[in-house]
Design a protein around this nucleic acid. Structure first.
Length: 495
RNA sequence: GGUCUCGUGGCCGAGUGGCUAGGCAGUGGUCUGCAAAACCAUCUACAUCGGUUCGAAUCCGAUCGAGACCUCCA
């Protein structure tokens, strides 16, 4: 298959043709969560966005190695270089070992990711598991002259890096002079040559819980370093795609570029991709401001924003109806609208899977219309993973499927196109968008039971005992089973 | 304050220099014992003011408004 994928490289701010460094193999690194509390829905959006990106790369036939880290050390509060370690802080609050915190919230994260039907990464490295690699990387940076040691801490020398002709601030569009002469005056900053320098290694005080030995004394690695070290270890000195939330552009990703360049003398990333924020009440979701919703609160309906519970896949679908680079605002009405659309899409997929194909006279106009729409699905995904347009195109196919189903006229499509249509609908809905059918939750016995109820209802209907038939319909409806009387008999769907 | 992004119909959200996505909601039909679903038809748009152009919602400028980053955050 000829691949014609274009993606938006946030480093240069343009859509460019995607060409992997090593032929058909793609390495992708996505910054994972800091596991010091439950992931909120905003975090999830980023991971769902990149899940679709990984899925589509695989769908196109690329060999994908997907690395997403777990930050379990080094991520500091308030200020990147002088705050308290987030994990340690939480450990004190909850009176647990730091690694108990890490374990607890890693499990929570995995559970939520699985509910959202995201694929697990190929490798999920942790910062604490790669202290040696991080120390080695710092050594390289020092050796190359871009870092210096002060009182057991090591800082990156931004000014030297810039003076040597490298661009620091390009990714985030920051002004270099402003960065060098940054005026913030924070406690402990006097250790740095320059306020914009950032920590690669921090000396640990006696009370500090999470610390490791190093050539510069006992301490812990800086947050920006882990992604550089682990990315290089598993995906090479230059990675095809590096992704993360928009908010990580500065300083995190900017620092990663500087670290990669100064350690390995190569631009560490070929394509930078950034997913946009999820907002709530018009403001970005954020743990520190408390403007958040937890996934569990949505699935259970126990929150003040939503009127009812929503399933994880409906939330996923809702997110995919917006482009990953756009801000998306979360609201109850928007989610309800998505839920209905989601059910409509799934229902049509089911119809298409179950239909018995009998060839009739071919309607060439209809046939080519379907082929065009199928090709449009690829076209839109190839255009920087435009899921909303792809979904819109799928809905046009849904309309055709329903029309053919009503008129019993699938046979007017050529057999070849019909199979192509089935494969495309299933492929895009299940494999690319990752929307599994909720009906799979029901088991054989409950299905038999519903069939039994329907046959009793049918008998009542034939006897014009509508009181009974309507009672059965209403009561089934109350437990979430919707009855539809069609020409070909009665069907039902579970919501 | 600096940098950047955005402002689309009742709501959510794509897109684009000319042929007006899609979903939800509304209205009128078809079907049905009635519903539901589906289908058909239909109604609401491109913040404001200028400019470029044969033509702009789409490009440029100004204004107003919103948001993000500049400190930890996906």
């Amino acid at each position: 298959m000829i691949k014609n994928l274009f993606l938006y490289n946030s480093l240069i701010g343009e859509k460019v043709k995607f060409e992997p460094i090593a032929s058909n193999n793609v390495g992708i690194y996505v910054c994972g969560p800091t596991v010091y509390s439950e992931v909120h829905l905003g975090n999830c959006r980023t991971f769902i966005s990149f899940d679709v990106i990984v899925r589509y790369l695989k769908f196109l036939g690329y060999n994908v190695r997907y690395v997403r880290n777990i930050t379990d050390a080094g991520h500091l509060e308030n200020d990147a270089d002088f705050g308290e370690d987030k994990i340690s802080k939480k450990a004190k609050i909850e009176q647990l070992e730091p690694m108990e915190i890490v374990q607890k919230y890693t499990l929570d994260f995995h559970n939520v990711m699985s509910l959202f039907n995201t694929l697990p990464p190929s490798i999920e490295p942790t910062a604490t598991g790669h202290i040696i690699e991080q120390i080695e990387m710092i050594k390289s940076i020092i050796k190359n002259g871009y870092a210096y040691e002060v009182n057991g801490s090591v800082y990156f020398d931004v000014k030297k890096y810039i003076n040597d002709g490298y661009q620091y601030g390009k990714l985030s569009g920051r002004d270099i002079d402003e960065l060098i002469s940054g005026s913030r005056d924070l406690q402990g900053q006097q250790e740095k040559k320059n306020p914009s320098d950032f920590a690669l290694w921090k000396n640990a005080s006696k009370q500090h819980i999470m610390k490791w030995p190093s050539p510069w004394g006992t301490g812990f690695p800086g947050w920006h370093l882990e992604c550089s070290a682990m990315g290089a270890k598993y995906l090479g000195d230059q990675i095809d795609i590096h992704g993360g939330g928009m908010d990580l552009k500065f300083p995190h990703h900017e620092c990663e570029i500087a670290q990669g360049v100064s350690a390995n003398n190569v631009d560490p990333v070929k394509y930078w991709m950034h997913a946009n924020m999820l907002t709530l009440n018009g403001k970005r979701m954020s743990k520190s401001t408390g403007n958040t919703l937890l996934p569990e609160e949505i699935f259970s309906g126990e929150n003040e924003i939503l009127k009812k519970a929503f399933s994880p896949l409906v939330v996923r679908f809702f997110m995919l109806q917006a482009h990953y680079r756009s801000v998306l605002d979360f609201s109850s009405v928007a989610l309800s609208a998505s839920e209905k659309g989601f059910n409509k899409l799934m229902e049509a997929k089911k119809v298409l899977s179950n239909v018995k194909f009998v060839q009739k006279n071919i309607n060439t106009e209809l046939d080519s219309q379907i082929v065009n729409l199928i090709e449009a699905c690829y076209k839109h995904m190839n255009d920087d993973f435009n899921t909303p347009q792809t979904i819109a195109t799928l809905f046009e196919l849904v309309s055709i499927v329903n029309t053919c189903n009503n008129a019993n006229s699938f046979g007017e499509i050529s057999k070849e196109t019909f199979i192509y249509l089935q494969k495309t609908m299933n492929g895009f809905i299940l494999d690319v968008l990752g929307l599994d059918n909720l009906d799979s939750q029901s088991n054989d016995k409950s299905a038999q039971l519903v069939e039994l109820m329907l046959s009793i209802r049918n008998e009542a209907k034939n006897n014009k005992n509508y009181a009974l038939s309507d009672q059965i319909r209403n009561q089934l409806n109350e437990i979430g089973i919707t009855i539809k009387d069609g020409k070909e008999g009665t069907t039902y769907s579970i919501t």
